[in-house]
Simulated assay, not measured.
Amino acid sequence: MPADSASINQASSRVNLILLGITYLLYFGQLGILVPYLGIFLDGRGFSSQQIGELFALITIARILGPNLWASMADKSGKGLSILRLGSFLTFATFCCVFWLDGFWGLTFAFGLMMMFWTAVLPQLEVLTLNCVASDPSRYSLIRLWGSVGFIVLTVITGVGIDFTSSEAPIFISAVVLLCLFISTLFIRENQSDSAHSSSQSSIWGKAKTTPFILFMLSAIFLQVSFGTYYGFFALYTRDLGYSGQTTGILLGLAVAAEIGIFLVAGRLMKLFGIKWVLFASIILTAVRWYVLADAAEWLWVLILSQVLHAFSFGLHHAAAIKFIHEYFGKAFQSRGQALYISISFGIGGAVGNYVSGYLWQQGAGAYNAFVFSALTALVSGAFLLAVKGKEMTR
């Protein structure tokens, strides 16, 4: 049997696909720890809400540089799996600095360095998985779902851990998860026939400078700005409203469960309504979500409704955005197009949103203003998207 055929069989084997599912579970499980609970950890270390917002903004900047750097290295070397393993190891190693460093700049350095290496993981994992299921692309969604399961499980576990121990629980749980993530990457196999150098040396900027893409990116940036309050302060918000850590964990898990459901029908919705209108509807529902959190979060049923809307805020919007990037840039630029989208929207948008929400939060006294700000920026995001012609998002 030729070497390439053997590598393809190993890459698409049941064991390898299970390992990929476990890796997704651990990666998104880590997000389920830090995204909602990093604010509680920092609050426990004595940080003010403004300092929390500033730290979030500074470490988010790593998401601007990181994806493009790692994508370029992967394209030029053709060694995506090696970069995945290296990124996982360095993420774990630099994260452990939080056990020895303290204070604003010490923790900013530790989390920022960790985020720089963390951005190497997901793009390479996505490419690796898509190559492994190339013979049957429908298997991708079944593997990717384990990431959402991991987010739910680790979010609930960490919420319970905070209730029964202290605000330090997230960093101990994170260290264990990141170590397991690195170990899981050591056993993954790749399709060798797809690891050769295949990147085009031509420039991506011919596509990136077009009006439709610029408007799409402005919309994406403002949407991520709107997420700043939720990502930075939702767990603190529910705690201040009297909800337990376990309840917060269940609410966060509910959001991801809704996300799983929408992933299963996203393709049909985009085919029925088109990418533009799926994106626009998701953005408007996101604005509604932030406003009800601002105005009526003391009611549990409102919190539940707002978390169900995460299916649109992230799940459906993300699926449609990735499909737009996939179709708009074509095969030659798909990897770099995705890196550009992630770095600019999540990097710049996330950094601005975290900084402004931290300034507005004022130890919880400005919660209403912060979530109203999020709702308004989501509406601005929708306005930019409306300026794009529908046919320009499907060509």
Score class of each variant (00 low, 15 high):
Ile173Gly: 05
Thr23Arg: 04
Ser77Lys: 11
Leu186Thr: 13
Phe280Thr: 14
Ala320Ile: 04
Val15Leu: 13
Leu31Ala: 07
Ile143Gln: 06
Asn16Ser: 03
Tyr359Lys: 10
Glu298Ala: 11
Arg289Ala: 06
Thr119Ser: 14
Phe222Asp: 01
Thr394Cys: 00
Leu101Lys: 06
Asn16Cys: 07
Lys209Asn: 12
Asn191Trp: 07
Val356Glu: 01
Ile188Lys: 02
Lys323Leu: 15
Ser12His: 14
Leu316Lys: 07
Met116Phe: 15
Ser13Asn: 07
Leu340Ala: 15
Phe222Glu: 06
Gly261Cys: 06
Leu113Asn: 02
Leu113Gln: 06
Ile322Thr: 10
Ile18Arg: 09
Gly147Tyr: 12
Cys132Met: 08
Val292Tyr: 02
Ala134Ile: 09
Ala11Glu: 03
Leu186Gly: 04
Gly366Phe: 13
Trp299Arg: 01
Thr210Tyr: 04
Gly382Glu: 13
Ile162Pro: 06
Lys323Val: 12
Ser174Gly: 06
Tyr27Pro: 00
Phe41Arg: 01
Gly274Arg: 11
Tyr237Ile: 02
Glu327Ser: 14
Ala351Ile: 02
Phe182Met: 08
Thr247Tyr: 14
Phe109Pro: 00
Thr377Ser: 13
Tyr27Ile: 00
Gly349Gln: 06
Tyr230Ser: 02
Pro36Arg: 01
Leu178Thr: 15
Ala258Trp: 11
Ala387Asn: 04
Leu376Met: 11
Thr23Phe: 13
Leu181Ala: 11
Ser48Ala: 01
Gly29Pro: 01
Leu340Ser: 10
Pro212Trp: 07
Ser138Trp: 00
Ser357Trp: 09
Lys331Glu: 15
Gln51His: 05
Gln338Gly: 05
Ser77Phe: 11
Arg189Val: 07
Leu178Arg: 13
Ala175Thr: 14
Gly350Met: 04
Met114His: 14
Lys79Asn: 08
Ala71Gly: 04
Asn68Trp: 02
Gly106Asp: 13
Trp277Phe: 14
His310Glu: 01
Ser13Tyr: 09
Leu86Tyr: 13
Lys276Gln: 12
Lys331Ala: 14
Leu181Gly: 00
Gly87Glu: 13
Leu386Asp: 03
Lys276Arg: 15
Trp361Ala: 06
Leu34Lys: 00
Thr158Lys: 03
Ala297Met: 06
Thr155Ser: 15
Phe117Val: 00
Ala257Arg: 07
Gly39Cys: 04
Phe56His: 10
Gly249Ala: 09
Leu26Val: 01
Ile143Gly: 09
Gly206Phe: 11
Phe28Val: 03
Leu128Phe: 05
Val288Pro: 02
Leu186His: 05
Cys97His: 13
Ser184Pro: 00
Asp75Leu: 00
Trp146His: 01
Tyr37Lys: 03
Ile61Pro: 05
Arg189Leu: 08
Met114Gly: 09
Ile18Gln: 07
Gly347Leu: 10
Met73Glu: 01
Val372Ser: 10
Gly349Ile: 03
Glu327Asn: 13
Val15Lys: 14
Thr394Leu: 07
Leu272Trp: 08
Ser202Arg: 12
Gly32Glu: 12
Ile18Thr: 09
Ala311Val: 03
Met1Ile: 12
Trp70Asp: 09
Phe373Glu: 08
Leu125Pro: 08
Val288Ser: 07
Gly159Glu: 08
Gly46Tyr: 13
Ile344His: 02
Gly39Trp: 13
Arg85Phe: 08
Ser7Tyr: 09
Ala235Gly: 04
Thr286Ser: 14
Leu264Trp: 05
Val278Pro: 11
Lys389Trp: 06
Thr377Arg: 04
Trp299Phe: 11
Leu20Trp: 09
Leu84Ile: 05
Ala321Met: 10
Phe324Ile: 10
Ile61Thr: 11
Ser72Trp: 15
Arg144Leu: 02
